[in-house]
Computed example of a mutant assay.
Amino acid sequence: MDPSELGRAVEAGRATASELGLQVDDAFVVHNSDRVALHLAPCDVLARVAPLGHLADSEFEVEVARRLADADAPVAELEPRVEPRVHVRDAFAISLWTYYAPVGREIAPAAYAEVFLRHHAALRRLDLDAPHFTDRVAAALREVNDRERSSELSDRDRELVSDTLGGLGTAFSDDRAGDQLLHGEPHPGNLLNTRRGPLFVDLATCCRGPVEFDLAHAPEEVAAHYPGADHGLIHRCRALNWAMFSAWRWRRDDQMPDRSHWRVEGLNRVRAALDRCGRG
Rank of each mutant, 00 (worst) to 15 (best):
D2R: 14
S4G: 02
L6P: 12
G7I: 11
S18G: 08
S18N: 00
L20M: 08
G21P: 05
L22N: 01
L22S: 04
Q23S: 07
D25M: 00
D25F: 01
A27S: 12
H31R: 15
N32C: 13
L38I: 02
D44F: 09
V45E: 02
V45K: 06
L46Q: 11
A50N: 02
A50H: 10
P51K: 11
P51W: 12
L55W: 05
S58D: 04
F60E: 00
V62S: 06
V64P: 12
V64E: 13
R67E: 11
A73H: 12
V75K: 12
E77V: 09
E77F: 06
E79Y: 07
E79D: 13
V88L: 10
F92R: 06
S95D: 13
A101I: 03
V103W: 05
E106I: 14
A108S: 14
E114P: 00
E114Q: 12
F116N: 03
R118A: 13
R118I: 08
H120E: 10
A122I: 10
A122T: 10
L123W: 10
R124A: 10
L126M: 11
A130W: 11
D135S: 11
D135L: 05
V137P: 01
A139Q: 13
A139M: 09
E152R: 15
R158G: 03
E159I: 10
L165S: 04
L165R: 07
L168D: 08
G169W: 14
A171V: 06
F172P: 02
D175W: 09
G178D: 13
L182H: 12
P186H: 13
P188C: 11
T194Y: 11
P198Q: 01
L203P: 01
T205Q: 14
R208T: 14
P210Q: 03
P210I: 04
V211N: 02
V211H: 07
E212I: 06
D214F: 06
P219W: 03
E220S: 13
H225A: 05
I234K: 03
S246V: 08
W262R: 08
R269K: 15
R271H: 01
R271S: 00
A272R: 15
L274R: 14
R279D: 03
